[in-house]
Nucleic acid binder design. Structure first.
Lengths: 107, 107
DNA sequence: TCCTTCGTTCGTCGACCATCGTACGAGCGG
DNA sequence: CCGCTCGTACGATGGTCGACGAACGAAGGA
C-alpha cells in the first residue's frame, strides 16, 4: 500500500458545501470541540475535551466534523489527534470560521 | 386587543442562540431565501422566491427562519412580506450573516 | 503476560426534520 | 357573487440525527 497508516478519509475542501459546514457547526457539542481546538491551536486527542457524552457519541461528532472538512484526524498509536483545518477553511470560506468563533463568547 | 393584526411570533434576538441561527442557515432552501432577501434588501412575499418545493413546505421553512430570528414577517391582506433582520442579527452576532452571505457565491 | 486506556463499530431507540397532499380561510378582482 | 390567489393547519411519511450500551481491537504500561 502507498500510505500504510492514518487512513481516516478527509474530504478536499473544494468538495465541501457551505451548508455542510454550517450543519456541522450547528450542534453545541461540536461547537465546543471547535472552540477548544481553536483555543489551543494545536492537536487534541478525542478524550481530552471533557465532553458530557458517551465515547461512541463522541466518535460520531468527530466524524461529522471530519466529513464537513472542519477537522483533521491523525492516528498515533492508540489515540487520535484532531486539529482544526483553519487555513484551508479560511481559503474556502473566508471569514466564516472566524465570525462563528468570535460569536461563541456571547451570552 | 392592543395589536389587532400581524401576530406571527418573533423572538427577541437576545433569546436566539448561535446554534439556532447556524441550524436555520444550514438548509439550501433557507439559504436561498436569505440570499434573495439580502440581494434586494427589502420585503418579499413568500411566493416570490421561485422555490422548488410545495407551498406547505415553504411555510415550514419561513417559520424556521422566523423562529431563529433571521427573518421578520408582516401580514398585509392575503399575503405575507418577509424581510431579513439584518441589523439586529449584526448586533447580536457581528459578522456572521455577512460572512455566510459572502460565501454563497462560491462554487 | 495481563490489564488498562483509547477509540471504533454495531444495533437500537426516540426525536426531530423536510417533504407532501389535502383541506381550509381570508382577501382581492372581475 | 364567484372564483382565484396566497398562505396556513393538519396529518402522514420516510429519512436523518443525537444518544446510548455492549462488544471489540490495538497499543501501551505494570
Amino acid at each position: 500500500m502507498p500510505t500504510p497508516d492514518t487512513q481516516t478519509e478527509h474530504p478536499a475542501l473544494a468538495d465541501v458545501e457551505l451548508t455542510d459546514v454550517l450543519a456541522a457547526l450547528s450542534d453545541p457539542i461540536r461547537l465546543e470541540i471547535v472552540r477548544q481546538l481553536a483555543e489551543d491551536g494545536g492537536e487534541r486527542t478525542c478524550g481530552s475535551f471533557g465532553l458530557p457524552i458517551a465515547k461512541s457519541t463522541a466518535t460520531h461528532h468527530f466524524r461529522v466534523l471530519r466529513q464537513a472538512g472542519v477537522v483533521t484526524s491523525r492516528e498515533e498509536g492508540t489515540r487520535k489527534y484532531n486539529a482544526l483545518r483553519r487555513d484551508e477553511l479560511e481559503a474556502r470560506f473566508p471569514g466564516l470560521l472566524g465570525s462563528v468563533l468570535g460569536n461563541l463568547e456571547n451570552p
